[in-house]
Amino acid sequence: MGGPPQRETPRPLLPGHGSMDLQTFAVQLLNGVQYGLVLFLVASGLTLIFGILGVINLAHGAFYMLGAYLAYWLTAATGSFWLALAGGVAIAFCLGLALEQLLVRRLYGRDHLTQVLMSYGLILVIDEARQILFGKDVHSVAAPALLAGGIRLTDLQTYPVYRLAVCIFCLLVAVGVFLLIHRTRIGMIVRAGAENREMTRALGIPFDTVNRTVFAAGIALAALAGLVVAPISTVFPGMGDGMLILSFVVVVLGGIGSVAGAAIGALLVGLTDTFGKVFFPSLSSMLIYVVMALVLIWRPTGILGRREA
């Protein structure tokens, strides 16, 4: 079954509780941030689809899983991870466009229960399609040669270059998404749509196109996360489930529709999970939910959420 994809995080040797040296702390901090950034890629798509389309998409995690399998399949087929990355995102984006046109479009304005059930049906279909296309085996994907190897920290510790690259890449994507939404005309339309759908439509904005693009972009972001994570995680059928739950937690923490909130939530979850595993190994899987419960008591609509959801 699903779990956070980075279960195999190399755990450094610790002298004991509390007495963590600076180096170990820095490595864990980096792990936490990297995990949080990957989480942000998935959750930002989810929160945009929530906020702008008003659709709850339980199948979002399935697209993350699909991304990882695409990384495996396309790397094997083309021999290049980079081609796989580009191809995977393109395939996911087209899939998103098609699904919006076929199914999701019919969910706008419908009750949440309908959306939950439709996206659950979609999960079953995607899972089974994955089974037919790629089988149910667990796979691993090699990191591209350019980013293989590690940076030597001490005699005993190295930090994989690829993980660092994932950090930087996700950060760039995050900044890109943020700029796109807050600094461009497209972003303005998207924000206007999230604020007041009817008014935006009345102003003559081609909302159908916007909706379709936002959905496809959200799906592509989830698949992108799966693609970049494939070399540092195992690729397995249940990987989408764990990611879905965590990105829901991120959206609850940050507030629906808020990309900045998703960034805060994702880093909070990433750091809580990573440091939780170090300091409270037995409680680590619960810790995230404790944080979520605390935030709910403090602000029921998320850290950056609006009062009326």
Binding site: I245, F248, V251, V252, Y289, M292, I297, P300
Partner: peptide, 14 residues
Amino acid sequence: RTRGLYFIMVTLAF
């Protein structure tokens, strides 16, 4: 304490 979408997500998470 939450409603609508949040309720669905929070119950799922718990």
